[in-house]
Amino acid sequence: MMVATSVKRWLSAAAFGALALGTASTGVMAAGGAVDLPEQEWSFEGIFGHFDRGEVQRGLQVYLNVCASCHGLQYVAYRDLGDIGYDEDQVKAIAAQYEVPAGPNQDGETHDADGYPLMRTALPSDRFVSPFPNENAAAAMNGGAVPPDLSLMYKARPNGADYIYALLTGYYDEPPEDFDLPEDFEMMAGLSFNAYFPGHQIAMAPPLYGDDVEYADGTEATIEQEARDVTAFLAWAAEPNLERRKNMGIKVILFLIVMTGLFYASKRKIWRDQH
């Protein structure tokens, strides 16, 4: 009897352990043979996670000055920047630096005399303007490799924040000597070596060199600093409701614990005559 029980216990423990392992492994696999990512600390992780306004604002600067020339952010609207500490006039000013297609004017024209599409100044209600008019244009101007939209990059890669940071800081002129590469590895022309990109050859040239932006708050713009800031910005861009979600979560779960406690007390009371 004792043996049977302990075997049963062991088996069920193994089963649940294996289940956890199984679900975890699906995530790891999707990395597609990339090396392990160095783990970073992020203010937005954990139960009390929140965005560091300064970090995210610096990240916006890096995105607008560096990334935005190739990468869109099509699901984020300029008005959303209100969430990370910009006031209405600042948001309007940022939007006003960009132009969006204006569509037919009162005379039904869609293009001006020189054949260019009619444009208007972007408004806070517009979404971030993509650098290329369509995917074919993006491919044609980038040697066939379409720079992906960054709106959801943080959620579209396993361990998104660590991945973006590692990728941005993982460029080398030459593969490092001690780097474990497949024997038939050969660098292709026009690609750059990156320690963390799956396959280690990436079409994106190193985007950050340090001092690519002059931070409004005077922070020194090292590569690591810029990579960190833009990662935080992209995390916000992908999950703008993260703070709301985590704040609400604490309240909901505390409430549920109280409610469940009351249900349990009622259950004990009602069942008292049965035990």
């Binding site: 409610m259 009351l262 009622s266």
Partner: peptide, 18 residues
């Protein structure tokens, strides 16, 4: 009326509304 049941019902009601 039992206080426990009233409290439980009230909390469950608030939870449902929320």
């Amino acid at each position: 009326r039992d206080f426990l049941y009233i409290a439980t019902g009230a909390v469950a009601g608030v939870g449902t509304l929320a």
